[in-house]
Deep mutational scan, measured.
Amino acid sequence: MALNTPQITPTKKITVRAIGEELPRGDYQRCPQCDMLFSLPEINSHQSAYCPRCQAKIRDGRDWSLTRLAAMAFTMLLLMPFAWGEPLLHIWLLGIRIDANVMQGIWQMTKQGDAITGSMVFFCVIGAPLILVTSIAYLWFGNRLGMNLRPVLLMLERLKEWVMLDIYLVGIGVASIKVQDYAHIQAGVGLFSFVALVILTTVTLSHLNVEELWERFYPQRPATRRDEKLRVCLGCHFTGYPDQRGRCPRCHIPLRLRRRHSLQKCWAALLASIVLLLPANLLPISIIYLNGGRQEDTILSGIMSLASSNIAVAGIVFIASILVPFTKVIVMFTLLLSIHFKCQQGLRTRILLLRMVTWIGRWSMLDLFVISLTMSLINRDQILAFTMGPAAFYFGAAVILTILAVEWLDSRLLWDAHESGNARFDD
């Protein structure tokens, strides 16, 4: 018995066209964080690309023209004298008006014999932002004059995390709450300039795509075929072959399989920071003279006294001054041990922890910024005066060393310790 099946006739004509040209192939790229070699397709503007294995951002879609970056830099340069030299806060102490600005706080630190601690604050609040705007201006002028731009481009990517104007702005709020127990506070004209400078700096850093600047100024022929001998440069993120001198053909720094002496430098910085954190938390970090009496505060006791007036601000200072430094030390110690013992479990967790400490590390400088600003506000000789204690130097040095330890660690070593050939990683 035959089955009668109805015929289905399409209502619209289906047209099949042959592909007349070869589909576009992607360029081969190595991930600078996990060293995976993959094919990167062509990316349009405002599109980002991520590593298929570790999800690290390979290409950032946010990109401004150099002219727009230069305009932002010149605007920031105009704001800087007002943000640093004009009063941020006014207080009335014992019937006398006192003005506080950024430069005055750094000068008070240096004047009291601790120039190293003052230079830490100076670099993060004044030096690094000033280098940022002058570097962008150098790129703008240098591109037109045919100057060598490689050193500036190499420095810009590392400079971003040292620009800490946003953290200093939080420190202004913390210092205001600490001082309000002794005097009446009012915002100064410099505060508005400083807030504007923070906003412009944040926007500029978020749109400063150094890798795209490398592509514009020093374009290189990408690798179009897969080759395990391809290496990625950690300076400019170019994937290719080393030249005859073993250097990256684009930025001219040595092109090595792994960062040289990464573990040794990381261990040295980490152990030194552990040693410095002990006096930083045991010795007094601030000293207040009130009517001839002397009151010393460690980091913890200062947080407890701050909690009596504002528990939320005390929580912020606790996280930045105690929780973050010790968390960074514990995480980095764990990561280094996992590399030495070739741990194969929990790779995803370790990668996330490394990215976390990379982002939060700079916030530990908050305590030094609060001390710097408070020193310029309260300084009335023996009637009422505020000065920093010996722990300030140890704390600042420990924070900087932990930042350097994270920067010096080559994250690809975590993958080397893991089993080879993993296309995915999980716990």
Rank of each mutant, 00 (worst) to 15 (best):
M1G: 00
M1E: 00
P6I: 07
T9R: 08
I14G: 12
T15N: 11
V16H: 14
R17A: 13
R17E: 11
G20H: 10
E22T: 11
P24D: 12
R25M: 09
R30S: 09
C31Y: 00
Q33S: 11
C34T: 00
S39D: 11
N44Y: 10
H46E: 10
Q47F: 15
C51S: 01
K57H: 04
R59I: 08
D60M: 14
D60N: 09
R62D: 11
R62P: 02
D63W: 15
W64V: 15
W64M: 14
L66M: 15
R68L: 12
A70T: 14
T75A: 10
T75Y: 02
L77W: 07
L78S: 06
W84L: 09
E86Y: 05
P87C: 10
L88C: 04
I91G: 01
L93H: 01
L93A: 03
L94K: 00
I96R: 03
N101C: 04
N101A: 04
M103L: 06
M103Y: 09
M103W: 07
T110L: 03
K111V: 02
G113H: 15
S119A: 10
C124D: 05
C124T: 14
I126C: 07
A128S: 13
V133Q: 03
T134H: 09
I136W: 12
A137Y: 15
G142D: 01
G142K: 01
R144I: 13
R144D: 03
M147I: 03
L149Y: 02
L149P: 08
L156W: 14
R158Y: 08
K160F: 07
W162M: 01
M164H: 06
L165R: 01
L169D: 01
A175C: 11
V179S: 14
V179I: 03
D181Y: 04
Y182M: 15
I185S: 05
S193E: 02
S193Q: 02
A196T: 15
L197G: 03
L197E: 07
L197W: 08
I199F: 13
N209S: 07
F217D: 03
P219T: 14
R221C: 08
A223F: 12
T224M: 10
R226W: 10
D227I: 10
R231D: 03
V232W: 08
G235K: 01
G235E: 04
C236L: 00
T239F: 05
P242Q: 14
Q244P: 14
P249Q: 07
R250C: 13
C251M: 00
C251Q: 00
H252W: 02
L255A: 15
R256H: 05
R259I: 06
H261Q: 10
L270Y: 06
L270C: 13
L271R: 00
A272K: 00
S273G: 08
L276K: 04
I285L: 07
S286L: 02
I287W: 03
N291A: 14
G293K: 12
R294W: 03
T298R: 07
L300D: 02
I303D: 10
M304E: 11
S305P: 03
L306M: 08
A307H: 15
A307G: 09
V313M: 06
A314P: 15
A314C: 09
I319W: 05
K328M: 00
K328S: 00
M332Y: 06
T334S: 11
L335G: 11
I339C: 10
G346R: 15
G346T: 14
L347K: 10
R350P: 10
L353I: 15
L354W: 06
L354E: 09
R380E: 00
Q382L: 11
I383A: 02
T387E: 03
Y394K: 01
I403G: 02
E407T: 15
L409E: 00
D410C: 00
D410Q: 00
W415K: 07
N422H: 09
A423W: 08
A423T: 14
D427C: 12
